[in-house]
């Protein structure tokens, strides 16, 4: 070793001193950065989520987060897991609810956000929050205008008992859509577009009846 003279010979005290010293320094640096950037990061995240909600619920200008607890919707607290976002327009009228859903896609898990309007009994908007689908093929679910137009008015009306969907949401082969509750698939992205249908089908099946039943909660809160 040519560098013997520059690196001190060790005894336990030196080793301990070095490790504790570096550990303290590193800890300090990390905590300072974390504290310094946290407000900005949280603001950016909230902003991104807000923009996504505005996209899936056209015409709204304000949102509020709700959590579903013990069979009722309540204004969400910080530690709540399942959250839906109610959207209101300029006059404070309740326009619909944005719901997050996720499921297995072609490559990895896809996370989506969609807007549901209890008045229209329809899904009114759709946005991909996160996907790793194949660029140029599977990622058409995010950008293909024809595919996205499926979600401006996708029927999710309830049956007579109001406890399930009249017709489950499903993806059909490209160009064969005949019913308003079907999603027209994408050629070349069959699996990805079918995955969206499945994710949405499962989520609407679960949430639409609950939200429809509890929609008064969202309307009440709007008038406060």
């Amino acid at each position: 070793m040519t560098n013997q003279e520059t690196i001190p010979t060790a005894n336990s005290f030196h080793m301990l001193r070095a490790m504790v010293g570096i550990g303290t320094l590193c800890g300090l640096l990390i905590v300072l950065t974390y504290e310094g950037t946290l407000p900005r990061i949280e603001q950016l995240r909230a902003q991104a989520l807000q923009e996504a909600i505005f996209k899936v619920l056209p015409g709204i200008s304000d949102t509020r987060a709700y959590a579903y607890k013990d069979g009722a919707f309540q204004l969400a607290a910080d530690d709540d897991q399942v959250i839906v976002y109610a959207g209101y327009d300029d006059t404070g009228t309740f326009k619909g609810v944005a719901i997050e859903a996720s499921g297995q896609g072609y490559a990895d898990v896809i996370r989506i956000l969609y807007g549901y309007s209890p008045d229209k009994l329809k899904v009114v908007g759709f946005y991909v929050l996160e996907s790793k689908e194949t660029p140029g093929l599977g990622d058409k679910i995010e950008i293909d205008p024809q595919f996205l137009s499926n979600f401006s008015a996708l029927e999710v009306s309830l049956n007579k008992g109001l406890d399930a969907l009249e017709n489950a949401v499903i993806t059909v082969k490209s160009g064969t859509k005949v019913n308003p509750w079907e999603i027209d698939g994408i050629t070349g992205a069959t699996i990805s577009s079918r995955a969206i249908g499945e994710i949405m089908g499962r989520s609407t099946e679960e949430w639409v009846p609950i939200i429809y039943k509890n929609q008064e909660v969202f309307k009440l809160k709007a008038n406060e």
Partner: peptide
């Protein structure tokens, strides 16, 4: 810190330092 870090713990120290800056 090259004169402060003993040879025996140098790799561990380097990794700690690098991980800190990466987190930042």
């Amino acid at each position: 810190l090259r004169n402060f870090i003993p040879k025996e713990v140098r790799i561990a120290s380097y990794i700690l330092i690098i991980a800190t800056f990466v987190t930042m």
